[in-house]
Amino acid sequence: MPANERRAAIVTAARKVFSRDGYEGAKTSQIAQEAGVSEALVYRHFPSKLALYRAVLRQLFIEQDENWQQLGFHQNGAEGLVAAIHSFFVLAAQGDLTPESLDRYRLTLASLSGDGSYASLIYRRSQRRNAKAIAQEHHAARLAGDITGEPLEPSTTAMFIEHIGTMMGAIVALPEASRPYGESGEDLARHATWFCCRGIGLSDAAIKRCLGGDRKT
């Protein structure tokens, strides 16, 4: 196997082990076993576990940026907010998550149950990158009369939505009999969208206009 492919295989294995055991609990011997190489070869490519962890983080940052390009705001005001929230939940509600998507959810949960360093880093990075756009869409929706009631901090509500999506993605990856939801797929994504859009102050009329359809809510 060429060196670049072997290095990529080690990073993929490390990502899986870190998502399962967290940074502190992961062992380079486990990563080597997962990658099907010797521990000495792991250290030939990465001088330390921290260097390997940083390589995993760089990969995750690239995916985070790609996801934002796909799921971010492509419309203005209420339309942009509803579309972005719904797209996020559609991705989270899929029962057939890719291994990469599942690892991202598990990495976040493993971090939150440990020292929190990865989760804190990924959340702060998301806020720095997206806070301005989120605030602009909230402001536009309020000016249009689609958001009413007590003004809420957009960055805080964005994190609430992120938390719901993270938990949803992790839960739907469980065996079907272990999932506590009474629905799945598009129905689950749709109802999560209604729940969060109501939470940020969007009127039912605005949500229905932007989300479309006549399903029971």
Rank of each mutant, 00 (worst) to 15 (best):
Y118A: 12
C210F: 06
T217D: 12
R20G: 05
G80H: 03
H86I: 03
T28A: 10
T28K: 03
P151R: 06
T156A: 13
A177H: 08
F89H: 15
A205V: 14
L211G: 06
L188H: 02
F195T: 09
Y43E: 00
L71D: 03
A35M: 06
N76P: 07
I85E: 01
V42N: 00
I85L: 12
A51G: 04
E66G: 05
E137K: 14
R179E: 08
A8L: 09
H139N: 10
A192G: 14
E176A: 15
S29Y: 08
L112V: 08
R209D: 11
T98G: 11
A40Y: 02
R198D: 05
R124A: 15
R198V: 12
L174Q: 10
I207M: 04
T12M: 05
R179V: 15
Y181A: 11
R209K: 14
P175D: 13
T157V: 15
H45R: 02
W68T: 06
Y123I: 14
A110W: 01
R209H: 15
Q127E: 06
E137I: 02
L121G: 03
I171K: 02
L143D: 15
L50A: 14
Q64G: 10
G213R: 05
Q69R: 13
V11W: 01
D187C: 05
I207W: 00
E24T: 12
F18H: 01
A140Q: 10
A141W: 02
R15W: 14
R215G: 15
A3R: 14
T217L: 13
T166F: 07
D21G: 02
R125Q: 14
G199M: 15
F88V: 05
N4T: 12
R209M: 13
A144W: 05
A135S: 10
G80S: 03
R58K: 12
Y105T: 02
L112W: 05
N4K: 12
G149P: 07
S178K: 15
C196Q: 06
Q30K: 12
A158Q: 07
A51E: 07
A8R: 14
A177I: 08
G201S: 10
E150D: 07
L143A: 15
A135Y: 08
L52R: 00
H86N: 09
A13S: 10
A55S: 13
M168L: 14
A189V: 04
F88R: 08
K49N: 00
E137P: 13
P180V: 03
T148M: 11
G80D: 04
Q127M: 11
A35D: 01
H163T: 13
S117I: 07
L211N: 04
R128Q: 09
D187M: 12
L81H: 02
R104W: 04
R179H: 09
